[in-house]
Design a protein around this nucleic acid. Structure first.
Lengths: 342, 342
DNA sequence: TATTTTTGATAAATCCTTTTAGCAAGATTC
DNA sequence: GAATCTTGCTAAAAGGATTTATCAAAAATA
């Protein structure tokens, strides 16, 4: 019953003036459009009185801009993505944008279907962690002049804005850290994935090992359903077969968690028996005894750059060729006591 | 340049027929509206050919339904809320709904401002973890006939649908578990908050203690900025002052994490020196050595009920008085070896 | 043959804005 | 006094759909 919203038409009728006038006043164009100050004040007062707010839907339809950004990630419940979600939210709202989220599970079909749905919704922009085989879909978006910003990983084959971190460099540093602390046999535990950030982490590890004349030892777990698969026991088997390992570099924090379980079962001591370092820092690494060294991705900077880039792309008038490519440095947290050497 | 989308008008013009006819066919009303099968097929084929999809914006404007649900929680980066977000997402999308999220930080002003913004956006429904002092705002929403579903906590003073868990009962059970295992001095560590779920947890603890003739010992931390505040050291001080404690019940998992740090600093052994249990289960509790007992909220059921309720409210035609009030049981995971007694 | 029914479609209103083009009255200019 | 400018405001189109009311032609009935 209170459901009927007042529209601009109601305002106009009540005051006995035209819709146009009300609209001009609402949009701050009273001066420019030569509406008398007297009338302007009267209308503004009335609007405040009845608490009128223009329908965003109608505005979007008319203006062709919905002020909605899609945040499409692999899994919104993942701590990393959820944290970014939280941080971009504030910045988006501050600029009048809303965020719709969705998770792809890294499934290209799902991602494509989602993107299709959103095109129809006339969203303005997409922040995407691309799944494999998404080149053509992203290209389509760009051709249709949506604002598109990739993050976490990018697509080398297409010219699209992105915000990523220095995966290779940080992996190199982390591996070097292990080497400097006396590790000779360092295992790299990762997942089978052709995601570029995982490839880069492997590259960084490989380069550090090769530069120091050490033999690489890479263990790859299948990408999907890690926990159901018993990743922990798989890692345990790997560690048993490779008992000479004195250092382990985990490519992601969830792998490290599984690895910690395995190490615990094997009664391996950290750092005495084996030195660890993990990509993706996590609160738990400082809670765990002993603390675990890790590479922290700069969440705040990532979020900041994401919104900065997105706003730039959104405000682009088509005259310039928008380009926003950012690679951010990570922070390596060394958590062994500083004088620890093997 | 590819930006111009085809509209229903374009379709009609291209085929030399009226918009109405196209619309009827699009909405599966061809039969009902006596459009010849021949024409129907022709139109359907053409639509597929040009890949036309109706504008959701225009539909929303016309129909007064946007198919958008707002998911307003305290903090979307919190693992609990992020997990729920992930689970309701699937169910929502399956039913043609999209989800916009936002975080209130439990700040009433922020929550009110957000709700105001969303009203304008003509969203259809709200899933809300209410902040304090939100009664009147929620009431307004109900009066304006939005679908509103509270969760995690509810507002006793107003008649609004909700999905919550059995906080008091589970807290009672967890405390009883500690008592049964020989604890005599059980501390309850919680935050200063008048959120009903926190009050209920305290009630459950209190009731268990009183029923067993034990003396209560409650420690309340300020609600805001727990980590900056050095919650861990505050808890440590509390534990030192109350060295007789042989059991601790943490009201939330983040309190437990801080508590674990404190216990570690004090070199307290678990479960030998002190037995623990925490509300809100977490992956870490099984990773941590020893495993920590905890009360698991049934995420899957919560999400399921949330969407079930939301869809019910959304499809409500106003004839019946919609009412969806669900209280779900939790699962207490005992993780001490089963024969452990103090 | 005249009338009624059925068939197959459509015109136009509506949802709520924004914005272009224009109009009447008063003020200036020559 | 006639022509031009300003001022203050508005009509109407557009944006893309849905839906009610209507209509002409063909078919059925009387």
């Amino acid at each position: 019953m209170a459901k009927k919203k007042t529209s601009i038409k109601d305002i106009a009728k009540s005051l006995g003036i035209s819709i146009t006038t009300v609209s001009f006043i609402l949009n701050g164009k009273a001066k420019e459009k030569r509406i008398s100050e007297e009338l302007t004040l009267k209308v503004e007062e009335y609007i405040k009185e009845v608490g009128y707010k223009p329908s965003h839907l109608a505005q979007s339809l008319r203006l062709g801009k919905s002020k909605v950004i899609v945040f499409m990630v692999e899994d919104i419940s993942n701590q990393f993505f959820a944290s970014i979600a939280r941080k971009i939210e504030e910045k988006a709202y501050k600029n009048g944008y809303k965020i719709i989220y969705c998770s792809t599970d890294n499934d290209p079909e799902k991602a494509k279907a989602l993107i299709d749905t959103f095109k129809v919704r006339s969203v303005d922009g997409f922040i995407i962690t691309p799944t494999p085989a998404l080149e053509s879909t992203v290209l389509e978006l760009l051709e249709e002049e949506f604002a598109v910003l990739l993050f976490d990983r990018w697509i080398p084959s297409i010219d699209c804005s992105y915000v990523v971190v220095e995966n290779e460099k940080s992996a190199f540093e982390a591996t070097s850290h292990l080497i400097q602390n006396g590790c000779k046999n360092i295992g790299f535990i990762t997942v089978e994935s052709d995601q570029i950030q995982m490839i880069d982490r492997l590259k960084g590890y490989s380069y550090a090992m090769e530069s120091n004349g050490l033999k690489k030892n890479v263990f790859m777990l299948p990408f999907h359903n890690l926990s159901e698969l018993g990743a922990s026991s798989k890692i345990q088997q790997y560690l048993q077969k490779n008992s000479e390992l004195d250092g382990i570099f985990f490519a992601t924090n969830y792998l490290a968690f599984e690895g910690l379980q395995a190490l615990n079962s094997l009664k391996k001591r950290i750092p005495e028996d084996v030195l660890l370092v993990s990509f993706d820092d996590h609160y738990f690494f400082t809670l765990f005894q002993p603390n675990i060294s890790a590479i922290e991705q700069p969440l705040e900077s990532i979020a900041e750059k994401l919104m900065e880039g997105m706003l730039m792309l959104l405000e682009d008038d088509g005259s310039s060729k928008p380009d926003f490519k950012v690679t951010l440095p990570n922070i390596l947290h060394i958590r062994e006591s500083s004088d620890y050497k093997k």
